[in-house]
Design a protein around this nucleic acid. Structure first.
Length: 208
DNA sequence: CCGCAGCACCACCGCAATGT
DNA sequence: ACATTGCGGTGGTGCTGCGG
């Protein structure tokens, strides 16, 4: 069985650009330049013979065709991600966690997560910041005082602490089972162990 | 027949300039 | 500020010839 498919890189560019409605943010997510995203989308449109975006002044919007195309493409990538996840043998999932240098890891009791999720390997990189996340050295990052960053999902893991502490992950992987498991565990752990969230503790990205 | 090396072509990307 | 375009660099791929 063979499939007649458009280039997958072009589809990724389209999907990211459609989600962000911005070539710039899509490029940031895909670690390429906006020009590259624009060319990929243009090539896809040429190949399909259909205009997917309306390029307006400082604004990018989906055409009707683009709106109709997007859900199926997103669903397709989701299926690929799920199939890939299921393909991994037990214990093969590895989560690279970045933690700011000032965080006292002993207070986090990561061994608790490891015993609760023996199927997820957890590797910690400290010190780490947004730089390591952007470069792909870590899959997610514990940060503080970071409410929003384009292309990345910042989930608050504590409440009522003023600045708040955040778990940051790329939009594309923020819903991966391993990331979701760690996020839920961290939220529950910090709720049950508020002392673990007192200073000095989860101190965020600074000086970047 | 198979494997390897050299070569040319092409696709992709980043940078810089330009337009909106 | 953001998208587009043109240009040059780089890496991958396919073709061809040669030797074992």
């Amino acid at each position: 069985m063979t499939y007649i498919l458009p280039p997958l890189n072009a589809l990724r560019a389209f999907e990211a650009a459609a989600r962000h409605l911005s070539f710039k943010l899509a490029a940031h997510e895909l670690h390429v330049t906006p020009a590259a995203v624009g060319q990929q989308v243009k090539a896809l449109e040429a190949r399909l013979g259909v205009r997917l975006f309306e390029r307006l002044h400082k604004q990018l919007i989906l055409t009707a065709a683009g709106q109709a195309y997007l859900p199926a493409i997103s669903e397709g990538f989701r299926h690929i991600a799920e199939a890939t996840s299921q393909l991994k043998p037990a214990g093969a999932a590895l989560l690279q966690l970045g933690v700011h240098g000032s965080v006292d890891l002993r207070r986090l009791e990561l061994a608790e997560f490891r015993s609760a999720h023996p199927d997820i390997g957890l590797r910690v990189l400290q010190p780490a910041g947004l730089h390591e996340l952007v470069e792909g050295k870590v899959d997610l990052l514990i940060a503080r005082g970071l409410g929003h960053h384009p292309g990345y999902r910042c989930d608050r893991v504590t409440e009522g602490t003023g600045l708040g502490d955040w778990l940051v992950a790329p939009e594309g992987t923020a819903d991966c089972p391993e990331v979701v498991s760690f996020r839920e565990w961290l939220r529950a752990f910090l709720a049950e162990n508020p002392h673990a969230n007192r200073r000095p503790r989860l101190v965020g990205i600074s000086g970047r």
